[in-house]
Nucleic acid binder design. Structure first.
Length: 589
RNA sequence: GCGGGCGUAACUCAGUUGGUAGAGUGCAACCUUGCCAAGGUUGAUGUCGAGGGUUCGAAUCCCUUCGCCCGCUCCA
């Protein structure tokens, strides 16, 4: 009976609903808006807060091995040098005028060939390009295959409007000159490159009043680095023991080239990140003699002392999946993408993306990476501060080992090294540290986007249902089927009629009863049916109606009971006022 | 960043060759002993995305710009 709208209109309807009902607005709308920034309205703010709370509760409060952190958005710029963000994004980039592909200005190989120019292009579809194209025909390239290549590039860039590549006509071909060793053309496409300009996805600002080069600071592009930067302080001040985690929720900023898909890719967004620090596999091996190997069907319910990074990584994937289920996102709307070895950044051992089936496509909600010791090592090197962790358990285990055993451990470690370039000396130094109980913890990083989660919750909750009344008239009911735990408003309270003071007074009594425990919405306007539907549209899971029986009219048997109406089934039943609070708390906690 | 489409009330959208700004829904008020967008009466709401130009006159034509959507590109 439920018939969700087709995906292509679903997103538009959701965006309309979000604006109409005060869930999400465009930022700065009265000034024409600003691309890539979105505001949460009254109901959206509640929804987001609920989601934030579920994460914080599941990841920190309900665990004894994770603590929280709330760090600043602007940090010492050296942090971003250590993390690699400054170097990666401060490059001078040049863009190909033919394909719009971007290359690093200092990475263009010199090329030779003939410089060709076209006055423009047109297609049988009516599409036309009224812009000069300058392209390098490489030495030895046949003129016809060159033309074909240009047509394909033009068609790719034009998108659907230009139709098929073979139907594109290149206009006013001209051969200009022969060049040798030119660095002005894109190495793959041969298109002319525009002028080099800096390209950095980090948003910049200045700290201090002078605003000079020396005062440049960045708005953090991820929250994770603050956790690494404060790792030592947390260790020194909160009696944590590896394995343990530090969780943080906060804003991050990226100067995205193309913000799109509503709030999915925004320039300002909120992340919920956990850095979970574990013993390196070598330390686990020294303590327990072995590292538990992961296999299909392994028991991931309770962390075990002999887990290495792989078990921990799988464990967190399972934990996060359970979390999503607890707020109403089950496996039917989720998907997983395990990055292949080739996709992985050089420091990462494994990374899995948890994806959600958005109306615009299946896309990332959370990444869970096994990052090794990369980040802390970087910060140790750049800051010059020791970030090694002293593990008493490891020290005790090593102290009990004979010199022979230690020697053979070094041999084993060297033989099983993952990167061949590591020297025996490096391995020996590493092992010497381990024997003293010292190591840099490895990291499992579940990193989720709060705004993406809010969007996923909205998208999965959105439903349209055909309902037929007694007169046989059918109508569409729009309903957000939020899990009660995350719903912005938990219960609507309605006096059946507003012109009867006794009903209104009783309804307000119930509001006062419930309000300390949950968000309630009182509504006395319009017909009762309309009030129910209004609440359906914003996902309020329960409605309570106060009528004359509540006041003891009729035979008095229903005194102090109310009608409880359930959003999804639209079913109604009588419930004593005294049972209302326990019932609702049971649903929303 | 490039190409295409779009921008009119809170939402969805109409608006003819340039001639006083429209509908539906929603919203607000009142009536109703009654429970699934019920019925009735009444009412409010527009920088026609913004700026400039052409014109006696612009939502409509032209230029610029901002925003949204799609494709390409990018995505630590």
């Amino acid at each position: 009976m439920s018939k969700p709208p087709a995906n292509d209109t679903r997103m538009e309807k959701l965006v309309s609903l979000c604006k109409r009902r005060g869930i999400i607005y465009q930022s700065s709308e009265i000034y024409g808006g600003i691309g890539g920034f979105w505001d949460y309205g009254p109901l959206g703010a509640e929804l987001k807060r609920n989601l934030r709370d579920t994460w914080w509760r599941a990841m920190t409060r309900e665990r004894d091995d994770v603590v929280g952190l709330d760090a600043t958005i602007i940090m010492h710029p050296a942090i971003w040098k250590a993390s690699g963000h400054v170097d990666t994004f401060a490059d001078m980039m040049r863009e190909c005028t033919l394909s719009n592909k971007r290359v690093r200005a200092d990475h263009v190989e010199p090329q030779s060939g003939s410089i060709m120019r076209f006055k423009g292009a047109k297609a049988s579809t009516g599409w036309a390009l009224d812009r000069e194209l300058t392209v390098l025909m490489r030495q030895g390239e046949h003129i016809d295959s060159f033309r074909k290549r240009v047509r394909i590039l033009v068609s790719q860039n034009a998108g659907a409007a230009a139709g098929k590549a073979e139907e594109i006509e290149l206009l006013g071909e001209e051969r200009l000159e022969v060049t040798e060793g030119s660095v002005d053309f894109h190495p793959e496409t041969g298109g002319l490159l525009n002028e080099a300009r800096p390209f950095n996805l980090m948003l910049r600002t200045y700290v201090g009043p002078t605003a000079t080069e020396n005062d440049i600071a960045y708005l953090r592009p991820e929250t994770a680095q603050a956790i690494f930067a404060q790792f030592k302080n947390v260790c020194d001040s909160s009696r944590v023991k590896v394995p343990f985690g530090i969780g943080q929720i906060g804003k991050a900023f990226r100067n995205e080239v193309t913000p799109k898909n509503f709030t999915f890719r925004s320039r300002e967004f909120e992340q919920m990140e956990l850095e979970f620090f574990i013993k390196p596999d070598e330390a686990v091996k020294l303590i327990h003699g072995k590292v538990a190997a992961w296999s299909e069907g392994a028991d991931l319910s309770e962390p075990q002392p002999d887990w290495g990074w792989e078990m921990w990584h799988r464990y967190w994937v399972a934990q996060r999946t359970a979390y999503y289920k607890s707020i109403g996102l089950d496996t039917d709307v989720l998907d997983y993408y395990w990055q292949s070895k080739a996709d992985l950044a050089h420091y990462a051992r494994a990374c899995v993306d948890i994806l959600f089936k958005f109306p615009f496509g299946t896309d990332e909600l959370e990444g869970i990476a096994a990052r090794g010791a990369f980040d802390l090592t970087q910060h140790q090197t750049h800051s010059g501060k020791q970030l090694e962790y002293f593990d008493e358990e490891l020290k005790a285990a090593c102290d009990a080992m004979s010199e022979e055993q230690k020697k053979s451990f070094i041999e084993e470690t060297y033989a099983s090294r993952t990167r061949p370039e590591i020297t025996r000396e490096e391995i020996e130094a590493q092992c010497a540290k381990l024997f003293k109980g010292l190591y840099i913890p490895h990291v499992i990083e579940p990193s989720a986007g709060l705004d993406r989660l809010a969007l996923a919750i909205l998208a999965s909750a959105y439903d349209e249902e055909e309902v037929t009344d007694e007169k046989g008239k059918s109508e569409t009911r729009t309903v957000l089927r939020f899990h009660p735990r995350v719903a912005p408003v938990k219960v609507g309270i309605f006096p059946l009629l507003k012109n009867k003071p006794e009903l209104v007074a009783k309804a307000k009594e119930i509001v006062a009863l419930l309000r300390p425990h949950m968000s309630v919405f009182y509504d006395e306007t319009a017909a009762i049916g309309r009030r129910y539907r209004r609440q359906d549209e914003v996902g309020t899971p329960f409605g309570v109606t106060i009528d004359f029986e509540t006041l003891g009219e009729g035979d008095g048997s229903q005194k102090d009971t109310v009608t409880l109406r359930e959003r999804d089934s639209m079913e109604q039943r009588r419930i004593p006022i005294a049972e209302l609070l326990p019932f609702l708390l049971g649903k929303i906690l």
